[in-house]
Design a protein around this nucleic acid. Sequence first.
DNA 1: CGATCGGTTGAGTTCCCTCAAGTTAGGTGG
DNA 2: CCACCTAACTTGAGGGAACTCAACCGATCG
Lengths: 241, 241
Amino acid sequence: MEGRMAYLDRNPGIDIAQRTAVFGTAVADEVPSLAAFGAKTSHFKPHEVVYYEGDPADRIFELAKGSVMLFKLLPDGRRQVVEVLRPGDIFGIPAGKEQNCTAETLTDAKVNVVDMNHIAGSPDFQRQITRCLAAQMQVLHEHAVLLGRKSAMERVASFLMHLVPDRGGTECAGPSETGGDTRQLKLFMTRQEIADYLGLTIETVSRVISEMKRRGLITVERNDEIRLNKVCAMCQLTGKH
Amino acid sequence: MEGRMAYLDRNPGIDIAQRTAVFGTAVADEVPSLAAFGAKTSHFKPHEVVYYEGDPADRIFELAKGSVMLFKLLPDGRRQVVEVLRPGDIFGIPAGKEQNCTAETLTDAKVNVVDMNHIAGSPDFQRQITRCLAAQMQVLHEHAVLLGRKSAMERVASFLMHLVPDRGGTECAGPSETGGDTRQLKLFMTRQEIADYLGLTIETVSRVISEMKRRGLITVERNDEIRLNKVCAMCQLTGKH
DNA sequence: CGATCGGTTGAGTTCCCTCAAGTTAGGTGG
DNA sequence: CCACCTAACTTGAGGGAACTCAACCGATCG
């Protein structure tokens, strides 16, 4: 009814599970750490499901390499991507007995998995989890502002700036840089996934990107590869300045 | 520009701080627990600020009694309430060195405060934090779906249903109840605060509430006191069924 | 070379926002 | 006790940003 074009319509025949999980924020490219706690490592191809919403939540996952998204579905098929994870992020920690999101890979991914009880006793690990959850929380706060208060243009600009390390943050490095105020980005997400992350439709995302092209802010090298021609100008569009 | 009517326009002369924190989910009415770790207890009146975005984040807060909201502001004054806390919730745990939200009371409130280092060593407490953060995370996921994918009517219905314990959840108690499918709710929030929580304008919230009145779903006893006449029907409007 | 998949573009509509003018409920003081 | 004031909320009219539906485009692949 009030819904945007539904995920379930696009993907007929999907059986939905239900309820309980988590997500993150991080930096590096390959990170070991749960390994120390006797984790098993699993490998995934792009667009494979790590777990479904409603699966029993008795293990802790750590993204070691690649990219994973967490999303929730409404019964009529509307989808919201609630977090996009990067290497180092911990996920799958439940509040109840079941996962509350579905976790699906965006790229090839390496995931460390440990049984919950296995590490419940380690203070070191508890501290690490706390740190990680707090960081993820902060990202979720930021995202709530985006979803609740930003225009389509601001959402897409914010999304792109999040992919630029060391820019747009508290102490932005500024456009210094040898070679001008420009950056090459790899998206790892389809327009549909971006739309479901930003609370928009695929058409709106496409239109905004076209508008940015028209203004000379970006060059679309490939569908999943964008060159920011004016990083600072893009940053101005995020609504944070 | 693309912004909704701005918080700063409504509250001229407010000086904004900036950056880093957290929030929650809970149950009881008065909860001690940090007390065991030598916490100091502070009392607050309604609409007092516990800390500002940008304040140094070196303490942990636990809401013992009352209600607190966390919000973020954009520079042009748009506000997003990112979490509404209940007794038992822990907040103020930073990802960086600064709070990333402003914390403001909604009601009279009692808050336990402990120095960060004071409890860093306790595994018991670490575990409790993890549990609490995971629960808050789940609420944030849910809220992202609301902000990204739900209509105004669905948002308000979801908001009201969140105030009804034991209903609308995974295993809803159903309309059994002695005395019919009805419930009295106290809001503790103004229309403006509700709007800023749900990513709407005050006018839209007001219109939706009026529409619910017209349909006989609710009776507005006072501005901050609403009677749900048909809890199940309200639940149907949340988009989760 | 047609088929398919992901993305773009256009036309029309709708939901919610903006602006502006009421209305109501409390509180205060004459 | 009533007139007045203010703050919070409601209601209306109009407009615009983003949605829906539908057609089209371009790249990749068997």
